[in-house]
Design a protein around this nucleic acid. Sequence first.
RNA 1: GGGGCCGUAGCUCAAUUUGGUUAGAGCAUCGGACUGUCGAUCCGAAGGUUGAGGGUUCGAGCCCCUUCGGCCUCGCCA
Length: 595
Amino acid sequence: MIKRTHNCGQLRAGDTGSKVSLCGWVDSYRDHGNLVFIDLRDRYGITQLVFNPETQPEMHRLSRQLRCEWVLGASGTVRMRGEGLTNPKLPTGEIEVLIDQLEVLNTAKTPPFELDNAGSVDEELRLKHRYIDLRRPEMQNKLEVRHRVTKITRDFYDSEGFWEIETPFLGKSTPEGARDFLVPSRLCIGEFYALPQSPQLFKQVLMISGIDRYFQIVRCFRDEDPRADRQAEFTQIDVEMSFVDSDDVIDVNERLVARIFKEILGIDVKVPIRRMSYRQAMDDYGIDRPDLRFDMKLKNISEIAAQSQFKVFIDTVGRGGVVKGFCAPGGGKFSRSDIEKTFTNFAADYGAKGLAWFKVVADEQAKKADLASSIAKFFSPQQKQQIIETFDAKPNDLILLIADTMDAANKALAPLRIKLAKELDMIDENVYEFVWIVDFPLFEWNEKDNRYDSLHHPFTAPVPQDLEKLDTDPASIRSQAYDIVVNGSEIGGGSVRIHQPDKQAKVFKLLNISDTQAQERFGFFLQALKYGAPPHGGIAFGLDRLVMLLTRTDNIRDVIAFPKTQKGQCLLTDAPSEVEQSQLDDLNLRTQTHH
RNA sequence: GGGGCCGUAGCUCAAUUUGGUUAGAGCAUCGGACUGUCGAUCCGAAGGUUGAGGGUUCGAGCCCCUUCGGCCUCGCCA
């Protein structure tokens, strides 16, 4: 077998005259009857091979049999291409290799799709033949970025004194949070492991064990419906530190983020990254992961709206709701039908019951802006001016408003704001706007179950000053949690944890978790807390989303080598699949169809 | 569980106002030609159960029902 001396992205003019051997796949094939050109491809690049019938008739004859994606070993001499024959698109484009020995290492069936325009090929087909899809430089680049990010991460945490420690995949199911993937136990009949949704409690136990600083690049599993940026199995960069407060955790980890963006994209992330309170994020952007690449803040005009003659607004504010919205610069170009069909339907998808709008028009006579809309008649000239001032609106802008409870209004306005920004081309794709969201509420009230839920998770510590409100006003307690957000995408989140057993017990109580339940689910952990738990905190980054940002894709499957479809199937291997009856017998399981 | 978009040759797409001869094109494939190409070019050939099943009709890629699959999304994701 021909062993390669170089790879296909390596040879340059300086190698002229060298005897070399290359291995790779036939990327393209150009037969001129006499001369034959082969572009040979491997992970590193493409090099042109030449077969000349005059000097090497035997090899030339053989070369004419070659086909795309065949696997070759080839030896020959590097030579400069002639004047005007270089290919500036290739790093190796100044040279070519004149082949005197060719070995077909393997033939290949014609690929089911062409590699060079696979971007427009049905993704289903790419997933079925993932081995071919992953030959494409575009996909290999994403895999490489992912590799480099994990490498940087390991080097960084190592240099900061963190140890990488593995935690179990076969764990204990806890009904909180997402649905668990269950694994039946053979030895304990009728019992199940759960695959981890995150190593949360194990990493806290490691702190109690005095490990001091831990990290892990770890697979996590959540059995929920996938999305464009969500897979049932995904990877976290999981971190925990002892004897720290939030500032310590934030400091170390934003330096990692800055290093990754510097090394991968050459972007300088200003450290410290700015911080924004949860309250402000919700007020100004309607969401706890604001996209700060553009402004277009939300404004609350409830007071003005309540004074108007518009019944929907008056009633909503009267019931304690709000009238809130934003002003889209240049949005005046949208037709009434754009607004009342497209945007209203869009908002309705997010639960909005309606969408009010004003076009800002120039009043030539008064030499100032005015509002035009089917509901403009319900507003006095003064009220209209107040609205224009509130939004700092200019002629040809579009003001969009939703009247509802604060939560409901925010829920629809946040995605609507993004949609308008995209429609109006307000987003610079080359910009990365980082922000830490801090001062989250510890709890949110769960109307349905008549109890509080953790906004983050039940092990998050309250801010010390708010501690006394645990008994009196739980809803107003802030937590020591922090999320890092880039361009509207949450790439990481964490908190300082509760390290005192009595406070942990109190929080469980507010979450309506009984002592018995707490013992069943987290007994081992409550026990561990009693044996000298240090103050500690940590964070977890979503590696997949981070790599998505770094490779500028909005499809999580593009950054996972072997991803699954929306039904959680692997089209390459055809998992999940039925199993042998004997396997079920071993597990004492019986299947049934229902519904 | 709900909503939306999609499925025609190996791939990407066409196929005329509810329907009307033999379902077309580009790329890929196969064969031939060609001394310098690099998305080679030129000539030719082959390639189809229109995702599947049923229905309406004289006639269905097109209309109706069922079903399978993919993507986006709401719910869900402590």
